[in-house]
């Protein structure tokens, strides 16, 4: 049901061109959303996924704050750093292990996506115990602290979704 409404609204948003939407577009949106919802009907949200948590506006505000302030600043710094490494070719790659101790799938996904989007670090694998294997473009320490790899991302992921 969630997928149905989300894809229905997304289709209408994409075909909307300022004025009123033609009735035929509603029919197309209904058809496509039905197909999508049927195709994804075996998708079961993880056990901690609840709509009360997801719809809490405070969470959305703190999520937006996280995306634009701590994550945005880290993204900017890391982009400059990797840009310099591309030009100079000064790399020392390796795959390091981190254990941020996150419980839910959603918080692990937020952290893994944040790590991957930040240049210089790339999540290669996450195992069942929640250990992250991160490819790091310049290994300063073979057993790094969490602070060195992703700063405060883990505590943010815990606050947002754990």
């Amino acid at each position: 049901m969630f997928i149905f409404f989300a894809s229905f609204l997304m289709y209408l948003l994409l075909v909307w061109s300022g004025g009123t939407i033609a009735p035929v577009e509603f029919a197309v949106a209904f058809l496509l959303a039905t197909i999508l919802a049927l195709a994804a009907r075996t998708w079961v949200p993880s056990y901690r996924f609840s709509f009360l948590k997801i719809l809490n506006p405070l969470r959305w505000i703190s999520f937006l704050y996280y995306v634009f302030v701590p994550f945005g600043i880290a993204l900017f710094k890391a982009n400059i750093d990797v840009a310099i490494r591309v030009i100079t070719g000064n790399i020392r790659p390796g795959i390091v292990k981190l254990t941020p101790d996150l419980k839910s799938d959603l918080s692990r996904m937020i952290l893994a996506d944040s790590i991957t989007l930040t240049p210089g670090t790339l999540t290669v694998d996450v195992d069942d115990e929640g250990a992250f294997y991160v490819h790091w473009i310049y290994v300063r320490d073979e057993n790094p602290s969490e602070e060195e790899i992703y700063g405060s991302f883990a505590s943010w992921a815990r606050r947002l979704a754990d």
Binding site: I91, P93, G94, I95, V96, K97, Y133, H135, V139
Partner: peptide, 10 residues
Amino acid sequence: PKFAVVDRLA
């Protein structure tokens, strides 16, 4: 990974 100094996953 080439030139890798450490590969914890392997």
